[in-house]
């Protein structure tokens, strides 16, 4: 993909105490570093190596990611809702790129 785009599915509103599920998907080849090109040379590794989910600045969930995670990495996790605020989701690429997206959460 020309641009690496993250997708996030999280509820826009929830009630206090509710445990919500967050799903994320990001387009990325996740080049493992194990494959060889037509000349027999190893194609260098390039993967998303880390994912962080923050809520109001606090880390709620984090993943150390290895090449064994499939291309277009999918991650699903949960959070117990306590107060309204904003999520920030961050993906780190081996090449130093950082992909991020934010989403607000209303609490009623």
């Amino acid at each position: 993909m020309a641009t690496v785009k993250p997708r996030v599915k999280a509820p826009k509103s929830a009630t206090t105490g509710e445990i919500i599920t967050i799903k994320t998907l990001i387009s990325h080849k996740m080049e493992s570093g194990q494959r060889k090109d037509k000349q027999g040379n190893l194609i260098p590794r390039q993967i998303i190596n880390h994912f962080t989910a923050r809520y109001n600045g606090e880390v709620v969930f984090e993943v150390d990611i290895e090449p064994a995670i499939s291309a277009n990495p999918y991650l699903q996790f949960n959070m117990r809702v306590e107060e309204p605020g904003e999520f920030e989701f961050i993906w780190n690429d081996d090449d130093g790129s950082v992909y991020a997206t934010k989403q607000k959460l209303k609490v009623g």
Binding site: D64, E66, S70, Y74, Q76, F77, N78, M79
Partner: peptide, 17 residues
């Protein structure tokens, strides 16, 4: 992969591929 949870997770559950 290594998942890092916190009490805020609510449940210690995660899915991936």
């Amino acid at each position: 992969a290594t998942f890092h949870f916190s009490p805020r997770s609510g449940v210690a559950e995660a899915s991936t591929r």
